[in-house]
Design a protein around this nucleic acid. Structure first.
Lengths: 324, 324
DNA sequence: ATGAAAGCGCTAACAG
DNA sequence: CTGTTAGCGCTTTCAT
């Protein structure tokens, strides 16, 4: 910056003003400085700027998850895509931090100005992390609700979606409707279970649930096998996401059951492949990308000193296809 | 840090030594300092450290892609997961930057020490970006090969995989084998096309290719429809990834063709769902997660002053299932 | 084995 | 509208 100033015949402060788009200068001066920056290939040093201004212009994406291969979930990816796009548009960097231990490190070390925390794992641990995040006092948003958190949360009508889906199955005459999910819990998954239970309860039907293993098709297949071997097997299985549903369908096929005639199967999320499998999956779609954008907007608005009202709950869409 | 030093009764330098694990001190001193850090809830300020040491301990993941929803591809996600895990294990942060314009900004602004560039888009633009990256002189690795680049590249035997897959189809008696891909090109995709062409050429069969639209199942369906309407339609279609293949299968179904009897279909990548669709997809699996790890290891080894030999080309695996 | 001093590149505050 | 001064929190260098 000193070199640029020297070359343009101004002080470093003026260069700083040009870089940061602060007015207060003649067009001619600005141009001279711009030319000098160009000639010298100058870029601001984000480190020095951050040290002095106490703002890094970066956002942290904090992924609370014990699975090391954390990004495998297509939903997570679309969230990050949404967050990343907004960050880019608003001139912010995006730092990804995952795991359980040093989750808040980016904030503590002042690498980022604010954060979005993506919640998974058992409720007690989630709450503990949210508390710690709150205590830091940085602008932040949660992805997935946390009970009694003061931080704004981006949510979708998962509960309602699951309720409507279960109601649909019951209306079709199913009386034994089971629910399968992976072992690791998410806020959104818990809402789906709650919606499922509510719908069944309203009709006096007892819930049957399995929550084992990873979020893979294999796990879906195993849980379905377990359910179908029971004395009074379900005639419909709701899976907590589409990949699990795929496993359920394969399990049914292998046992000679027709889908949806002998066993209705539904998923959740409307992944890319869901419309193209056979039978096409009945599922619930969530505007995940838009939700990621909302979370990032929330945090950046606060960082940039804008009003920023918390977003409404995002609507979900019931997608009725062939499988249920 | 000054506060910690005061509380522990030492100089700031000693605190710095403790934080950075430099030896040269009594156990007792270290403990006193550690206690003081704990009591005050001290964390190093990454910004200040970065300014002084000229090292940020962060890695950039530079995603050259014009599609704003850049993370939609499951393969990209697994790469990032691999990169992210290694970064975390080695004490580095991971900064994601995407798009076309300010792709090198994290490097220029000294937000990161090194970078991994994930290449996509047309070859000429890819090369231009690689050149610019090289010119910066930072430790970096490429994901996907770039012609005549001096930077180390992480690659897989895509060409060989496609060649073997095409050979398999030809050996099964197919004489009209087509290839479909999305519009945006990747190095890995180009290798797949090359392998396909080589296998056909070796048997004197003319290639038939379509490269339109996004990397979606819909696009696969459209390209397949186009191919199957031709005078002399293919009896086998190789898709450049599994999602496209799904679309091809649906197209076949809708036209009353049985897969694989009337039309053989293959994919690439072995996505999560591929073993669970009907018919199960014949495909080629790539160790994408391991490749992401390798890319990050390459860069961090260089940053940490370790020898770091470039990784070998990763092997791919032909996965023969029911669809071809 | 520990301490003192200097300064990384930038921006805030204020002076001119 | 532009310049001067000071200092962000840390690490490097050199001294003890």
């Amino acid at each position: 910056m000193r070199d640029v100033a020297a070359r343009a015949g101004v002080s470093v402060q003026t260069v700083s003003n040009v870089v940061n788009g602060r007015g207060h200068m003649r067009e001619q001066t600005r141009e001279r400085v711009a030319a000098a920056m160009d000639a010298l290939g100058y870029s601001v040093d984000a480190t020095a700027r951050g040290l002095r201004s106490a703002r890094t212009r970066a956002l942290g994406f904090l992924l609370l998850d014990d699975d090391p291969r954390y990004l495998a979930d297509p939903m997570t990816d679309m969230v990050i895509a949404g967050v990343g796009d907004v960050a880019r548009e608003r001139g912010y960097g995006l730092l990804i931090q995952s795991g359980e231990d040093g989750l808040l490190q980016p904030l503590l070390e002042r690498r980022v100005d604010g954060a979005i925390m993506y919640l998974s794992g058992e409720p007690a641990r989630r709450v503990a992390h949210v508390r710690r995040l709150e205590a830091l006092g940085h602008p932040a948003a949660l992805f997935g609700d946390a009970p009694s958190a003061s931080l704004p949360a981006v949510t979708a009508a998962n509960r309602d979606g699951a309720r409507r889906l279960a109601a649909h199955l019951l209306a079709r005459g199913h009386t034994r409707v089971a629910f399968v999910a992976g072992r690791t819990s998410w806020p959104m998954i818990e809402e789906r279970v709650a919606g499922y239970r509510a719908a069944l309860h309203a009709r006096g039907v007892a819930p049957v649930e399995r929550c084992h293993g990873p979020w893979s098709a294999e796990a879906g297949e195993e849980m379905a096998a377990d359910l179908l071997e029971a004395a009074d097997p379900p005639t419909a299985i709701m899976a907590a996401n589409d990949l699990l549903a795929l496993g359920v369908i394969r399990c049914a096929r292998r046992r000679g059951l027709r889908v949806p005639d002998d066993l209705a199967v539904s998923g959740f999320n409307d992944f890319d492949f869901s419309a193209f499998v056979d039978p096409a999956l009945t599922t619930v779609s969530l505007p995940v990308y838009a939700m990621g954008r909302a979370a990032a907007t929330l945090v950046i608005d606060r960082l940039d000193g804008r009003p920023a009202s918390p977003p409404p709950e995002f609507a979900v869409e019931l997608i009725l296809r062939a499988s249920a």
